[in-house]
Amino acid sequence: MSELSWNNSIGHFLKEAASAAPTPGGGSVSALAAALGAAMTSMTANLSQGEKYDHIHEQITDVINSMERLSTHCEELMVADIQSFEQYMTALRLPKETDEEKRYRTHSLQTAVIAAIEVPMRLLEVCRDGLSQAYNIVEMSNKNVISDLGIGAILFEAAAQSALLTVDINLASLKDLDVKYSYETKTAALIREIGQIKDQTLLMVRNRIAN
């Protein structure tokens, strides 16, 4: 698979994702969805500038800067997702003839599984932070593009739900039950928080559209 980055075309990414190659897969697609959520939030903020919005200039600027950082982080996570899969496949190919080789292979696989969990975990946090920023400007941003802010919120939650599936499928391979429980507790809290912020944001979006 050729190296992916934000510099690739959408068509190239879709072709790679649709191919028989295992990467880019769901983790990379989740990162892209979150970046699109950041783009919609940033667009809404960028169109909420000028004399009419002088009183919220600082808040709007904070959101624009935050979305730029989040988008960069999403690109890094897309790459990290591919690398974590390659790490797992490398561990899977390790020899397992002797007891020592088996122990080393098992350790390497579990290390790779944790790496594969950590990437979507970080994406969940990105989605939570992005949604929080969108919520911060939902009542004050340009009403003419408020639907785009709502779309950004939906994309952030979709990315988070997708990332959660990636966490779950890797958790199934994690042997340390205490570590597994810790991840399950953390993801449950994050996804609950994300859903609540998204619901509150969309409620305000729909209210502003109706009024």
Rank of each mutant, 00 (worst) to 15 (best):
M1Y: 15
S2V: 10
E3D: 02
E3R: 01
E3G: 00
N8A: 06
A18K: 07
S19I: 14
S19H: 12
A21I: 11
P22K: 15
P24L: 02
G25F: 12
G25Q: 08
V29I: 15
S30Q: 12
L32T: 10
A33P: 02
L36M: 12
L36A: 10
G37R: 00
T41A: 13
T44S: 12
A45C: 04
L47W: 04
S48Q: 01
S48G: 07
D54M: 00
E58K: 06
T61Y: 01
V63R: 09
S66A: 14
S66N: 11
E68T: 08
E68L: 04
R69M: 03
H73Y: 08
H73G: 05
E76L: 02
E76D: 03
Y88R: 07
A91F: 00
L92F: 08
L94V: 06
P95D: 14
E97I: 05
E97H: 09
E100R: 01
R103D: 15
R103F: 11
R105H: 13
T106F: 08
T106V: 04
L109W: 03
Q110E: 09
A112S: 10
A112Y: 05
I114H: 07
A116M: 12
E118I: 05
P120Y: 10
P120G: 12
P120W: 04
R122I: 04
R122N: 13
L123P: 06
L124C: 09
E125H: 10
G130S: 13
L131N: 15
S132F: 04
A134P: 05
A134H: 08
A134R: 09
E139K: 02
M140F: 05
M140W: 02
S141C: 14
N142A: 01
N142W: 00
K143W: 04
V145Q: 14
I146P: 05
I146G: 08
D148S: 07
G150W: 02
I151F: 06
G152S: 15
I154D: 12
L155P: 02
A159P: 05
A159F: 11
Q161Y: 03
L164V: 06
T166N: 01
L171V: 02
S173M: 05
L177K: 10
Y181R: 06
Y183S: 11
A188F: 06
A188H: 11
A189V: 12
A189N: 09
A189W: 02
I191D: 15
E193V: 05
Q196W: 02
Q196F: 03
I197S: 07
I197Q: 09
K198N: 08
L202D: 00
L202C: 00
L203E: 14
L203R: 09
M204W: 06
R206F: 03
R208S: 01
N211M: 11
N211Y: 08
